[in-house]
């Protein structure tokens, strides 16, 4: 799987993502600076976590209009898979590749801890190595992870199977107290309609090695590597 990791000023998970892709998928990703207008053809584009452009105006708002994003939006339109992790999810929403928006955490506190998420579907390139209903444990690290969309949009997402992950208790029960940020309907990850774009608040790249406290994120990269080989 050929992959690219986009690096914005203020990205801070780009190297973690690079290492995870190298170790789990077995190929060195291209690291693409935000000012690049183009980059090599790849099978997967990853927008990593961090605080691009210092979260000025709104988290992800500036990055969504950076030169490299014009290319990312064009390629996503052609069906090239895109994974946005944390700040990457915020950028995908601001760029209009995913519906909704990530608002300030309801608690107003930064959430930095492990959470549990329930895999809502295994029918995607991102989740095919998980069983539907499986529970994965991964860290979150964000201040703006409170997913919001209006009821009509949320209903449409549910009908079309675009909800990828929900925050849950360790036993898989979706409960408000399991959410670190107050996201509507406990949403932790959403797909675009074609399920070629995933935005996800937790950090699978930080859960790929037992030394880091967990390996539940590996299945996402393994699934992508298998599907996009």
């Amino acid at each position: 799987m050929r992959s690219a990791v986009v690096v914005f000023p203020g990205s801070n998970c780009d190297r973690d993502t690079q290492v995870a892709l190298r170790d789990v998928a077995g190929a060195e990703p291209h690291m693409v600076w935000h000012a690049e207008g183009t980059f090599p053809e790849v099978d997967l584009i990853v927008l990593p976590g961090g605080f691009s452009y210092g979260d000025y105006l709104r988290a992800g708002a500036m990055a969504a209009h950076s030169p490299v994003m014009r290319e990312v939006v064009a390629r996503a339109g052609r069906g090239v898979p895109v994974l946005g992790i944390c700040n990457g999810f915020q950028i995908l929403c601001e760029a209009g590749l995913l519906p909704g928006v990530l608002m300030r955490n309801a608690s107003l506190r930064f959430a930095g801890k492990d959470v549990h998420v329930r895999v809502e579907t295994s029918q995607s390139i991102f989740t095919n190595r998980y069983a539907a209903g499986a529970v994965a444990r991964m860290p979150v690290a964000h201040g703006d992870g409170n997913y919001y969309a209006d009821d009509a949009t949320l209903d449409r997402l549910e009908e079309r199977g675009q909800i990828a992950f929900r925050y849950c208790l360790p036993d898989g029960t979706v409960a408000a107290e399991a959410s670190p940020n107050g996201a509507r309907r406990n949403i932790a990850g959403v797909f675009n309609e074609a399920k070629t774009v995933l935005g996800f608040m937790p950090h699978p790249e930080r859960a790929c090695d037992p030394l880091l406290g967990g390996t539940d994120g590996r299945a996402m990269i393994e699934g992508l590597a298998g599907a996009l080989a």
Partner: peptide, 9 residues
Amino acid sequence: RRLLANTVI
């Protein structure tokens, strides 16, 4: 429309 506001919210 394009940057200053996010009209979703």
